[in-house]
Write a protein that binds this DNA or RNA. Sequence first.
DNA 1: TAAACTATTAATAAGCATTATAATCTGATA
DNA 2: TATCAGATTATAATGCTTATTAATAGTTTA
Lengths: 145, 145
Amino acid sequence: MSDGKLQVAIETLKKSGIRITPQRHAVLEYLLTSMSHPTADEIYKALEGKFPNMSVATVYNNLRILREIGLVRELTYGDDSSRFDSNMRDHYHIICDDCGKIVDFHYPTLDEIESLAEKVSGFEISHHRMELYGKCEECSNVSVQ
Amino acid sequence: MSDGKLQVAIETLKKSGIRITPQRHAVLEYLLTSMSHPTADEIYKALEGKFPNMSVATVYNNLRILREIGLVRELTYGDDSSRFDSNMRDHYHIICDDCGKIVDFHYPTLDEIESLAEKVSGFEISHHRMELYGKCEECSNVSVQ
DNA sequence: TAAACTATTAATAAGCATTATAATCTGATA
DNA sequence: TATCAGATTATAATGCTTATTAATAGTTTA
């Protein structure tokens, strides 16, 4: 992650007339520099040191704003918390059933599936999502021991 | 849906040593005859007439048991409630962004994607899921008017 | 620069789906 | 039919997220 992405993101915020508050900047920067896909609570805890008075609602508010403006994607899986992803390129996710780790998986978009789905269902398909589940290398090694 | 499926499912329960209580039978029957993908609460409300004293926890307990035994699949999407699907064949789902309707979409399983994901990520992939999103015919027609 | 306006934050309460607990009840077997 | 582990009911608790409201801090205008 280069600072360039952060600058571009800040420009997007400015163009939308959204203020760059310190808290908002920190949330955005954390998402852009994080290689993981953090939950709202993880972001909250990570920024606790810098902003001891920040409310958890502020994190949620800013995540919602960043999502609405298209800078962040919300990943909603099962029962757990939502996770947030600042990688806005089309991609899929591979998730470890054991430890919950999520890694990005780039693959050509499955356009032909969307076309077929439109034909058989009568829907106008706008997008799709896919997750692959399994066991990551670390967890595979642990279970072998 | 034929009664055959219900009989087969009940046999599976018996073999697993799980009691066939009236509530459990009703939840199972509702799932098998329902063409939709109901939430726990929808099932609860649908069976209210027959079982005025049934607890919502009973619905959740039974759904968990049916899931663990492989008779039902839990569909966990966004912020909303889980939905439950008694169609255990491999298939994908098409979801209407407007009204939330979910329809089944049968398509050859994307095995080659799983293979590639294993190669690039080092994961042992066990399965995957995909949802296609868009607007169903009814909702498309409404928005045209 | 000062006043007025508006977005944002913090603190807290509330909402909702789901799970845990504990007491009571009951289906299936002997 | 008596037994008892499993199931149900009622209720409390949990955890994530959103709503509310008052205070705060940028931004704009005069």
